Amino acid sequence: NDIKSQWSKIMNALNIPEWDTDDTNIVYSNGGLLVLDGFDEIANEINKKPGLQQWLRYCTENANYSVIITSRPNVKYSYLKNPKLFNVIGLKSQDIRKYVCTYFRNDDQRQAENLLRKLNSSPNLKLLSHTPLYLRLFCYITRQQLIKTREEEEEEEEEEEKKEIQNISLLDELNNISISKLYEKLLVCYMKWNWIKFNGTKYNPNEQEMFSIFEMEIDYLSRIAWEGLKDGQAVISCEIQERVLNIINNKYPREHISVISQWSRINSFGFLQGQESMNPINSVYFPHLTFQEWFAAYHL
């Protein structure tokens, strides 16, 4: 009971926002479930505080509810008693085929087959395609290329046979770039995907324009990613946010990043979660640690 009364305080220490007693009661209810998704992002906090280790050990040994912890494989749980370990293998080959074919169900199915062949012929693309997010982005890239090709061919009144040849050559582009460039392209697509979702298609910058038009915003994201990793923080504190904002404001004196129009752009990209306004009052985090790592590398 003493531990139960401390749950809100514990969640605050772990930078898990908006936790209240109702959430605790749900977990403690018969058959309750606590999911700690992305545990590797808070592992450092727990490793530094024996009290948090005691809390987690108590949770995992409680017979009244279940605890599921997801994490990268590099995190060790020496303070837990005989946890059951499972490996997430990602999408299987048949899952990838089913997803791609479903994605293009309203298009020419040859596009699905072309993409599947391209994924299977490239070790890098094949490896990444087992992750749902990357597979979704590969499909998105392919569809955007298809739309662009169709628009160009309608203007030029190209023949049907030439369409397929051009589409295949566009897919080849994914296979002939380095891993770092591939990540860059995926991230730009993710940015554009979220930008359109929040802002519509009235102003729709292409991939090449994204990093130049939004130089200040990208600079902010890359700096905050690097500062967080440097301090061992996947959940980035208000102190780091303030420090980075001051750097950005000094670097771009004519454009203040904290004005609403600029901050809304950052939210539109979908990279930074947990912060709804330009004044740091909560910790923030990247929805995928891969994004934080890439932005940190971009900063360096």
Rank of each mutant, 00 (worst) to 15 (best):
Y252T: 00
N194D: 03
S264W: 14
W226H: 11
D172C: 15
S169Y: 07
Q166Y: 15
K202R: 14
I257F: 07
N267K: 09
E173L: 15
F269L: 05
S268R: 01
E161Y: 09
G228T: 00
E255S: 08
L182V: 09
S277W: 11
L221D: 15
I240K: 00
G200P: 01
E215G: 07
I177E: 04
Y252D: 12
S178C: 09
R254D: 05
R265Q: 14
R243D: 13
E207N: 08
I247C: 04
I248D: 02
S178P: 09
Q233I: 10
I165E: 15
D219K: 13
S178M: 06
S180R: 06
E276V: 03
E184A: 02
I179Q: 08
F271Y: 06
L174P: 01
N206L: 06
Y252W: 07
K197W: 11
E161L: 03
L170A: 06
Y190T: 02
Q166F: 10
L245W: 06
Q233N: 03
E184T: 07
L171E: 02
R243G: 12
W263V: 04
K230H: 12
Q233D: 08
W226Y: 14
E215N: 09
Q241Y: 01
G232E: 09
S222T: 13
D219W: 11
N204Y: 05
Y203G: 10
N176R: 05
Y190Q: 05
N267L: 15
Y203T: 12
L171S: 07
S264F: 05
D231Q: 13
I179E: 13
K185R: 00
Q166M: 13
N246W: 07
S268I: 01
I177F: 01
L186C: 02
N246L: 12
I266K: 00
C238Q: 08
H256Q: 09
F269M: 02
L229R: 08
Q208D: 15
D231W: 14
D219P: 06
S268P: 01
K163R: 12
F211Y: 13
I196E: 10
S180D: 08
K181Q: 13
Q233Y: 00
